[in-house]
Design a protein around this nucleic acid. Structure first.
Length: 644
RNA sequence: GCCGAUGUAGCUCAGUUGGUCAGAGCAGCUGAUUUGUAAUCAGCAGGUCGGGGGUUCGAAUCCCUCCAUCGGCUCCA
């Protein structure tokens, strides 16, 4: 007998070799029907795998990540089986479960090409196989046996994976005619996979290495019920409605022109107003925090970037130098602002009493991004960073870092960004050669970041080895409408540039010392930030940011004079207002302005004109009643104050 | 850059096997209507069918090539 501990800490005895499924059955049949995976001492297992020791367990139903993982992983195997039967000789790379669904990287051979139009066939085959209730069986094998199996199959990808795993204990999973190298866990059989949708096919380099072969990746998702799949697809559709590229066009915020060039956004008047409002908001915050504005040119001599080290690292992969016609001097479009800011620091002497010094600039930079990587406003070739560089003593590092976190959190709050992750990137402790700077300084910087985030109560993810070569950093990541992660705010510690630019300050000991530099950008780039803001709000911006705050809708031309009077009053009170004076019915005007996401619509007709009122409609909510137009000003101002 | 898909009017899309196939709705313009809480009516205008080359008696439709966009991969100072 073995002792099984449940999540509520109760302990029960079972036969040695009992499976999760049998334990569930002993509790209730309905539970047994619903469980898909089991955690056994922190490992996730198949529910049919025998447990041979005392263990604490947790049974997982569909709602748990563990279950979904097993479900989608099993679906990936099912897809592989379908592909193998439709395209014999296909070789298989990896086929994991992902956050939403699964994929499999396959190599169907050079003569075969799988495209989106083939997906329904694969999908149908999967459904056919699933309905056969094929059992997933687990088998543990030694390395040489596993190698033998895949050598016979001629699957070099699996052979490579097995070889890299070394002498680890391997497991194979089979269902139907398909066998795969896999850690598991899987479902007991294919029958719960009721609803399947293969979403798209894409190329993916084998092991993510662009020097290696490009495999065909097929993405899909599956559910235990058709209704769940339908709901998911509706959700995807709704997310597409919020896509910043679509909303940006509809609300006339920005555009692109082939003639200007791809990846070079053109801000339309409404978008420019929105962006300027964000910029002046941040400028005000920064002024309060002791930042000093600086302005630098868009180009700099190539030498500047040779000094900074960026030319060596990125020179070949960036826009090439601009040459002067007479002297043949070479200039680079600036890919970042820090070298210019370092030169500003060098323009005078600093005492320790002057530090920290904080130089801020909305600096437009240009980076050559690969054509396939360009994406709306989130990945562009020309963008404006809300950049600042803080030069401080090593002792000031933590406090300065903390203050930057404060600014970022304040901004995120004002814009109602609650759903973000903070990622701390540290250096790889096993590969210190990669990084510049002393052990002592690195430890100081890494500790400063970790302590600062802890003091601020930030929930963080720590990624070792993700630090830049010149220092550790803290990034703020946010998701877009379709779940892609983007980096917005960033705070980076830098030991490299002060060294390269030979920056100094005079300490209390009258000796020269090296300052530490912090790069920071709360928005990241204005382009990307606005893109994510659009997707978070669906274009329904906070009132203080909205290009137009109110539109006056006269019932008919008779009330245009009164509408003008209200308009003047509101505009004089700094409420951004327009009149919709078209000879349309009121219903039409309401509809059109609702679709333009105008926060407030003010209807004025005979009743309102007589009483000095406006009838107010709030975006998305409809009629919220009547008030004096003077009162409306206060109403708006109160709301704006609440937001900021 | 790589893999795959797509590219018809400002926007969203129709255009069967190459032969009145240059179309619709919305937006725009003009006129009528003067309206009470999410689409008033009529008329007009608008496109070298992404660019270039080719096959053909004939190409939006087939082929080649370039460009752009979309979904990924890779990269991101």
């Amino acid at each position: 007998m073995i002792n099984i501990t449940f999540p509520d800490n109760s302990v029960r005895q079972f036969e040695n070799g009992i499976s999760g499924l049998e334990i569930a059955k002993s509790l209730s049949n309905s539970l047994a029907r619903e469980i898909l995976a089991i955690t056994v001492d922190k490992e996730i297992w198949d529910i049919t795998r025998p447990i041979n020791k005392d263990a604490s367990i947790k049974l997982h139903k569909w709602g748990d990540e563990e279950s979904k993982h097993a479900f989608w992983h099993s679906s990936a195997h099912l897809m592989a089986e379908a592909i193998e039967s439709l395209y014999p000789g296909t070789k298989f790379g990896i086929g994991p479960a992902i956050e939403n669904g699964f994929y499999y990287d396959i190599d169907p051979g050079d003569s075969v090409q799988i495209t989106e139009s083939d997906l329904p066939d694969i999908e149908n085959k999967m459904k056919e196989l699933a309905s056969q209730k094929q059992v997933y069986t687990r088998k543990e094998v030694p390395t040489d046996e596993a190698l033998k199996i895949f050598k016979e199959k001629g699957d070099e990808y699996k052979i490579e994976l097995i070889t890299d795993l070394g002498d680890a204990k391997l497991s194979l999973y089979s269902q139907g005619n398909f066998t795969d190298l896999c850690r598991g866990p899987h479902l007991p059989d294919t029958s719960p996979i009721k609803a399947i949708k293969l979403l798209n096919v894409a190329g993916a380099y084998w092991r993510g290495d662009e020097k290696r072969k490009m495999l065909t990746r097929i993405y899909g998702i599956s559910f235990p019920k058709q209704s769940m799949l339908d709901e998911y697809l509706v959700l995807l559709e709704k997310a597409r409605e919020r896509d910043h590229r679509k909303v940006g066009r509809e609300l006339e915020l920005f555009t692109f022109s082939q003639r200007v060039g791809s990846g070079l956004p053109l801000w339309l008047p409404k978008g420019a107003q929105l962006r300027e409002r964000l910029e002046s908001f941040l400028k005000k915050v920064q002024q309060k925090h002791g930042y000093l504005p600086v302005i630098t040119p868009h180009i700099g001599q190539k030498e500047l970037y040779v000094t900074s080290g960026h030319y060596e690292k990125y020179g070949k992969d960036s826009f090439q130098p601009i040459k002067t016609p007479q002297e043949g001097e070479e200039f680079l479009l600036k890919p970042m602002n820090c070298p210019h800011h370092c030169e500003i620091y060098r323009s005078r002497q600093f005492s320790y009493k002057d530090l920290p010094v904080r130089y801020a600039e909305f600096g437009t930079v240009y980076r050559y991004e690969q054509s396939g990587e360009l994406h709306g406003l989130t990945r562009v070739r020309g963008f404006t960073q809300d950049d600042a560089h803080i030069f401080c003593t090593p002792d000031q590092l933590k406090e300065e870092f903390t203050k930057v976190i404060d600014i970022i959190l304040y901004i995120f709050k004002a814009l109602d960004f609650q759903d973000f992750t903070a990622q701390i990137s540290l250096r790889d402790p096993d590969d210190k050669e990669k990084y510049i700077g002393s052990d002592e300084n690195w430890k100081k910087a890494e500790d400063a970041i970790i302590e600062a985030t802890q003091e601020k109560g930030l929930v963080t993810v720590i990624e070792k080895g993700e630090a830049a070569f010149y220092g550790p950093k803290l990034d703020f990541m946010v998701r877009d409408a379709i779940g892609r992660k983007w980096q917005l705010g960033t705070i980076q510690v830098d030991y490299n540039l002060p060294e390269r630019f030979d920056l100094e300050y005079v300490g209390a000991d009258n000796e020269k010392h090296r300052p530490v530099m912090i790069h920071r950008a709360p928005f990241g780039s204005m382009e990307r930030f606005v893109a994510v803001l659009i997707e978070h709000t669906g274009g329904k911006f906070p009132l203080w940011l909205s290009p137009e705050q109110a539109v006056i809708l006269p019932i008919s031309e008779k009330y245009h004079d009164y509408a003008e009077k209200v308009l003047n009053y509101l505009n004089n009170s700094d409420i951004r207002t327009l009149i919709d004076g078209r000879s349309e019915k009121i219903g039409r005007k309401i509809r059109d302005n609702e679709l333009k996401k105008i926060p407030y619509l003010l209807i004025v007709g005979e009743k309102e004109a007589e009483a000095g009122n406006v009838s107010v409609r709030k975006q998305g909510e409809g009629d919220i009643g009547t008030m004096k137009f003077e009162e409306f000003v206060e109403f708006i101002k109160t709301e704006v104050e609440k937001q900021l």
